[in-house]
Design a protein around this nucleic acid. Structure first.
Length: 204
DNA sequence: GAGTAGATCCTCT
DNA sequence: GAGGATCTACTCA
């Protein structure tokens, strides 16, 4: 096993949210709820570029109860419920009051798979366990309770074990499920690890 | 395999 | 009162 190092404030406290989304590929997301440790390597992300991005909850500087955490300190955890049943997990970047965020869409399970199976009610581990933002959050135990927290706590944190994907191992596409964002739906803000079976939006 | 509808509830208008 | 950064199952072929 190679050395795993927690990502600190300086990783999130940068201006280019698109770059951060790209760099999050290969990082390890850890959660520790109920004394059970779960982790997985991130293989799919999307950048949401704040006030200039129609797909963002903060487009045009809109500030509401729900999106308030988007304006938080870098490293803040933003979880919200979509379609009434899915929790979506985001990481806040850039300075406070600049609502940039990265949606974590898929990861490859590493530790705590047993617990993920219990949480999702699945009988065996397959590629759907952490494929897609809804499934991922359920498997790791993310819920609205986590929103407003940060990635420097013992409950949720990111690690870097030194893995770097090469340029030709990363595919950039437009984002998923944001057709209502008009022209911004075409922006190339989605990053995926080429050929990884946990990446969402493809047949099994 | 591809396409579509239904589930389900919180937030904003 | 409408709609959403989704997922699954079911239909049809």
């Amino acid at each position: 096993m190679s050395t795993r190092k927690k990502l600190g404030l300086s990783f999130y406290d940068r201006k280019d949210v698109v770059l951060i989304a790209r760099e999050l590929l290969g990082k390890i997301l850890n959660t520790q709820f109920d004394d059970v440790h779960c982790s997985g390597r991130i293989v799919e992300t999307e950048a949401y570029r704040g006030v200039r991005d129609r797909a963002s909850h903060a487009f045009g500087g809109k500030r509401t109860t729900r999106s308030e955490d988007l304006y938080g300190e870098p490293g803040t955890v933003y979880v919200y419920i979509c379609y009434g049943m899915h929790h979506l997990f985001n990481v806040i970047t850039n300075k406070k009051n600049i609502p940039h965020g990265v949606l974590i869409r898929a990861l490859e399970p590493m530790e705590g798979v047993e617990q993920m199976l219990i949480r999702t009610g699945k009988l065996s581990a397959d590629f759907t366990l952490t494929k897609g933002p809804g499934n991922l959050s359920r498997a790791l135990g993310m819920s609205k309770l986590q929103t407003g927290g940060n990635l420097f706590s013992k409950d949720i944190y990111m690690e870097d074990d030194g893995l770097r994907y090469k340029k030709d191992e990363i595919v950039v596409t437009k984002r998923i499920g944001v057709e209502s964002a008009l022209e911004d739906a075409e922006l190339p803000y989605r990053f995926i690890v080429k050929g990884n079976p946990y990446v969402s939006g493809r047949k099994s």
